[in-house]
Design a protein around this nucleic acid. Structure first.
Lengths: 191, 191
DNA sequence: GTAAACACTTGACCTATGGTAAGAAATGAA
DNA sequence: TTCATTTCTTACCATAGGTCAAGTGTTTAC
């Protein structure tokens, strides 16, 4: 399976693994596909899986009391997606996950995840560094959201993540930036 | 040293450790104290330590181009504080850290940290879960900041973290909530 | 014990962004 | 090819929260 390679590549990057361990890892994961605009997770359900996106694009969002969707994550090839709070504590998900493109993923259940870490404790290091980096990014994004203008955040995104503009509708990008599509439209015109 | 107990307590919670390992852990840390209003870290410096606060209260903030301080973290007893990006990548810190109260901490250098994880790989699990939880919290806070009103965020804080109002000036709490002290004052009056 | 610094509030006015509504342009389905 | 849906833009008005300025307590430092 060609699509497994990138998953193993990233594991290897932060904690070297043997051929035998590779097999153990792969057997813990299961390939799944999803069509554009289909739900991977609906809030209220428990999120039983952690997903590694091998190819595609998905968004996580929550729906407020007025029924408006607020996107907090857009993830593409070779990254992880899930509702971590629900996944780790087996509580009902607050968030939804939906495919923006037809996507291929490798998923691992909570039970398999825990067992995998027992079988190969060295993977704790991979996930430690993964969450560490994710946390640092989340704090930087929090600061930008609180203290920078929408225009600065837009420009930053344009510079750091240009690919997203090729693959994701502006409505979603606006929501991710914390503004309405109308405001994003005005920002883009001003430039 | 009585103040070490809580550090070990938390390590033990997520990855059981032996008496011998406890000694190894303690020797990697060094106690430090800081007086109210003194800097623990100034932006531009490299943050060489990860600090576990045994007793006290500190804030992390960044100073924007107009010289205004924006607080993104307020931490009290039995939690960690640092500029993680600077600490892990040995780059100049973007953030400042200052004591709000006279505080006692246990600090560990980057080198000691790496060595400790090599000596006791089981601690990777502790830090994996620590960062995992921190990341989940940061995302929840990001969503609240983007999509809830300042008043909702204030009420949430009052409910979840009442102690902070006894120990931290409102100017700092306002900044943490992403608003000005004037706005916080108005929110408090309305209630 | 007193001056300086800090902490908090209030008021008047301003601005970035939101809400609503509508239309144009692009995409997709029959 | 045509109609329907999705995507994006524009215009007008509303509002949460910011900015500036002033005033009152309350600590802190010498």
């Amino acid at each position: 399976m060609k699509e497994d390679n990138k998953l193993l590549y990233y594991f290897n990057k932060w904690s070297a693994i043997t051929k035998e361990e590779e097999a153990t890892i792969l057997s813990a994961f299961e390939p799944v596909t999803i069509k554009k605009r289909k739900d991977l997770l609906v809030s209220g359900q428990t999120c039983n899986y952690l997903y590694f996106i091998t190819q595609g694009c998905l968004r996580s969002f929550y729906i407020n009391s007025k029924g408006i969707e607020h996107i907090y994550q857009i993830r593409m090839d070779n990254s992880w997606i899930s509702d971590l709070e629900s996944f780790f504590s087996k509580s009902p998900a607050k968030y939804n996950i939906e495919a923006i493109e037809d996507s291929n993923m490798l998923r691992i259940s909570h039970e398999q995840f825990e067992q995998l870490l027992i079988k190969i404790p060295r993977l704790e290091r991979y996930f430690r560094i993964l969450f560490q980096k994710a946390y640092i990014n989340a704090l930087n994004r929090l600061n930008a959201t609180m203290w920078e203008t929408a225009m600065d955040r837009y420009n930053e995104m344009l510079k750091e993540n240009p690919e997203i503009f090729q693959r994701v509708p502006l409505v979603y990008i606006a929501s991710y930036l914390g503004i309405t599509p109308e405001s994003l439209s005005r920002i883009r015109r001003q430039k």
